[in-house]
Each structure stands twice: as structure tokens, then as C-alpha cells.
Design a protein around this nucleic acid. Structure first.
Lengths: 262, 262
DNA sequence: GTACATTACTTTAGGGTGTAAGGAGTCGGC
DNA sequence: GCCGACTCCTTACACCCTAAAGTAATGTAC
């Protein structure tokens, strides 16, 4: 795996990404196709959503569609391209209407929120995108939405690009923490607090001088408090909100600096 | 893979992470160990550095040490734990001396820079850490360093934690872009510009209405300019610097807001 | 109506992965 | 000198992706 597509494969990939999603029925000879690229991608996304990326194999996708793994190769060049399609199609789900009529800041917050939701609904996105840019319509859609909302800051576009990148990274990072804690909880059957508690006890036992070696971390105190809600997930959410606020404050400062000394 | 360690395994993992790195030679019977956990981890890191995470297998690590894959299981419970060790040991390489005597901002910048370097030297870190927290000494070391530097802002520690998370995410995201572009270049043999140029041509051909559908993205213009240096990598570096500056501006605003209305 | 080209899908096979199980060989302590 | 502990190896299994070849179904041309 991790094969960087060559020249010919690149064309095929791009055609799949950008081509029409509903293909006109063929006229020539041969049996009618029983599947479609979109059906395959949808099945793959379902699996990844429900059982995680580790459960996604050509076999499992084929099985869910009542075919063998090899049947998929009629529609999709390989697993790499399938994952690219999953990724791009899912990014395309991001809503696009974020009105900046109340100013850019509420719009940016709403957009960040939508990105958070999208990634939490499809946590496998976070394991995929480390790959190179896919350059599909979904990716363009996300970039366009981010750029157009933050262009309302009035900053020059080449600066907006940095803002977009930073915002995107903050969202991705914090939602990753949330998704992980959720996954760990379901996967081990252990509640977050139990897991954390067991780990803390182990740490205290094996590393008695922890507080001395990492005083500042220790000062944060035992991070688990009484709460009914999943703790780590709420923590990640707070980190997300605070991080976005910090960044947007920075953007505001940049706006003032740019237009202030007029 | 992606197995969340159970109770017993958790103890073993933590012992490996926190235990002494130079094990005292055994006294009992049996042949002397020819390997060591540290040697295995070092070999694994070498492979990941040189050939990427995809080339890292128990077989390849064993081979590099002149053993079979199964020999490693004498020292390490499984691949998951090996990767955790690689991750944590490598994080431990982050320098720790960042003087805040000139103020917190230069220290934070230097620290961000060190993090950037570390990740660019070991790009596979970015594919690993998506996993749950490892809770090893390296991870604590990084947290401690980040927290202690940013505690110099004077903000309450629970707020510093958000800053740390945001900063870390920005660094990780932008260094990922840099690492990817570098990897893509070496992997395909194609220069970044060639790759980008081919992709752009393909896009223009397959999606003639690209500029109409994504006007803001299009306004950014063809991103490739004349330059001898790797373009995308420099772009990622700029994005990193700008993102960090934005965030630190936000932090400054937060400091003013907290202490200003005194 | 029949032959042919075309296509969907299956079977088989080959080379990869992680790791469980059991067997060799080596050494210290009795 | 032998026992038991220990390292390391061989074998084996289940799973992965996918190349190649075979089978069955379909539409078109004669």
C-alpha cells in the first residue's frame, strides 16, 4: 500500500472523483453491471463508520454487497482509490451555507462546528487524510467554504489561506482526541473514567516520582472529576472551542494591525 | 491491529515504557539475550525514518537485527507495543531547554520550531499518534515542556492547556503537509512541481468549470511559481509560521483581556 | 438464429502481514 | 551431569491486496 499513483492511474482516479455519479446505462454487449462506484463507496463508508477503518477490506466491502472482493476491481482500480473516493465524497457532505451577514466570526464558529460534527460522524477521516491531497470535488468544496467564509475578514486572500490551514488543523486535532476517547470506550467496553483510572493507578505505582519529574503536568492535577458525561470527550470539545477562540482572536488582531495604522 | 490493550497488557506496556532502558544482565540460566528492547526500537525507528511506516514489519525489523520476526516477541509483546515505544522514545528527543528569560513568545516560537524539526526528522510520527495516548515518558516530556514554556504567559494553567493543544495541533498539521510533499517527491521520483503541474493539467482538462464552481479557491491562482526550492514544502513552512503567529497573537489578546480590566 | 465481442463476476494463486504453538539449542545452579 | 529456564527458530494459520485466467451473461452483426 501507500503507492503514489503513477501517470495513468492518476487520470483514472481523477475521472472517478470528478466524473458523473450516475452513469448512463451501457448499451453494448455483456452483462449489466450490478454494482456502481457510488454503491461501493457508500458501503465502504458504512463499514468504516460502524466498525472503523481496520474492518475495511475489499472482502468486507464485497461481502456487504453480496459479491467477492475481486468484483470491486471492475469498478475501482484498487483500495487506495476507494479510500480516496470515500474521503472525498464524505468531505462533500460539509454544509456550504454559512452566512457572514452577522460578521465573519459567527460564521467561522458555525463552520468550525460543522467540521467538528463531520469528523465526529466519520472519525476514520482522521486516519485517511494524512495521505497526499486527493484533489477531488469534496476537498475543493471544503477549501472553498473555508476560504469564502474567512475571506469576509477582509484580510488578503493569501493571508486567509494561512488562517484556513490553522483553523482546519485545530479542528482536526481536537476532534481526533474526542473520537479516540469515544472509540477507546466502545472498543474496550470500559468507560472512559475506568480506563483513565486504571491507567492512573498503574502510573502511580510504576512511576512514583512522576510529580517530581513533570511538575507542571502534575499541577494540572488528576484530570478526572465527577461527571456523568464522558469526560475526555468533553475535554476535547472544550479544547476545540478554546483553540478556535484563540485563533480567531489572533485573526482579529491581524485585522486591526492591517487596517489600524491607516 | 488497532487493538486496545486489555488489563494485563496495559501493565506490560507501561513497564516497557517506564522501566530502565539498560537492563541489568540476567543471572539465571538460559542463553544470554542477544537483543534488547532498546536495540529493537532503534532498528524500528531507523526503518521508519528511512523507508516509511509501510516498510515497518516485524519481519523487516527482525531482518535488520539478523533475527527472525518471532525473535522479537521475546522482548516486545507485539507490534502495537513496539510502535508505542517508537513513538514515545522519539518524542523524548525533543530538547527541553527553552529559556523564557526573554519573554514567553520567543521561547514558544523556538519550541514550535523544535517540534517542527522533530516531526520532519521522523515523519512517521504523524501516522502513529492518531492512536490513543501512550502515557509514556516521552509524551509526558513533551507535555511538560510545552506547558512550562507557555505557563510563562501568566495565564491560569487550565487555560494554558488549551493553548498547548492548539499549538501542538497547528504544528502537527502543517508539518504533515511538509512531510507529505517531501515524501511524494521522493516516492514518485517526480519533482513537486512536475507532480503539481501534471495534476493541474489533468484538473483543467477534466473539470473545465473549476474556476466557476470554486471561485475563491481559483482566486488563489495557480499555486506554483518559479522557484528552485521545493514549493509545497516551503508553502507548508510558511503556513506553519503564520499559524503559530496567529495563535500567539490570540494568546496575547487573552492575556490582555485577563489582566487588563484590573 | 448464430457467432462474436464485450463485460461482470468468480476462482485460483502468490506474496505480503501479525502472531500462536511447539521444538531446538544454550546456559546457570544444583 | 542433569534440570529448568531461557532465547531463538520453524511451522502454521488467518487475514490482507490483487494479478491472471476462467465462466457466464448480454447485445450487436451477420
Amino acid at each position: 500500500m501507500v503507492v503514489f499513483a503513477g501517470q495513468g492511474d492518476a487520470r483514472r482516479s481523477m475521472e472517478l472523483l470528478w466524473g458523473p455519479r450516475v452513469v448512463a446505462p451501457r448499451t453494448g454487449p455483456g452483462p449489466k453491471p450490478g454494482l456502481s462506484v457510488e454503491a461501493i463507496v457508500a458501503a465502504a463508508v458504512d463499514i468504516a463508520d460502524a466498525e472503523g477503518m481496520a474492518a475495511l477490506s475489499m472482502r468486507s466491502v464485497g461481502e456487504r454487497l453480496g459479491r467477492t472482493a475481486m468484483a470491486l476491481y471492475t469498478y475501482v482500480p484498487g483500495k487506495t482509490e476507494l479510500v480516496d473516493l470515500m474521503y472525498d465524497r464524505t468531505l462533500g457532505e460539509l454544509p456550504s451555507s454559512f452566512s457572514t451577514s452577522d460578521g465573519w466570526r459567527p460564521a467561522a464558529l458555525a463552520l468550525a462546528d460543522a467540521l467538528w460534527d463531520l469528523h465526529l460522524r466519520h472519525p476514520w477521516l482522521l486516519q485517511v487524510s494524512p495521505a497526499r491531497p486527493v484533489l477531488g470535488p469534496g476537498e475543493f468544496h471544503v477549501q472553498e467554504t473555508l476560504l469564502s467564509v474567512l475571506a469576509a475578514t477582509g484580510l488578503p486572500l493569501w493571508r486567509v489561506r494561512w488562517v484556513v490551514a490553522a483553523l482546519f488543523n485545530i479542528v482536526r486535532g481536537s476532534v481526533q482526541a474526542a473520537a479516540e476517547s469515544r472509540q477507546a470506550a466502545t472498543e474496550t467496553g470500559q468507560s472512559e473514567e475506568d480506563w483513565w483510572f486504571a491507567r492512573s493507578a498503574l502510573l502511580g505505582e510504576l512511576v512514583p516520582d512522576l510529580a517530581a519529574r513533570f511538575p507542571t503536568v502534575a499541577k494540572l492535577g488528576p484530570s478526572v472529576e465527577e461527571s456523568d458525561e464522558p469526560y475526555l470527550e468533553r475535554e476535547a470539545r472544550l479544547s476545540f472551542e478554546a483553540g478556535v477562540e484563540l485563533l480567531l482572536d489572533g485573526v482579529e488582531a491581524a485585522i486591526v494591525k492591517a487596517s489600524g495604522p491607516r
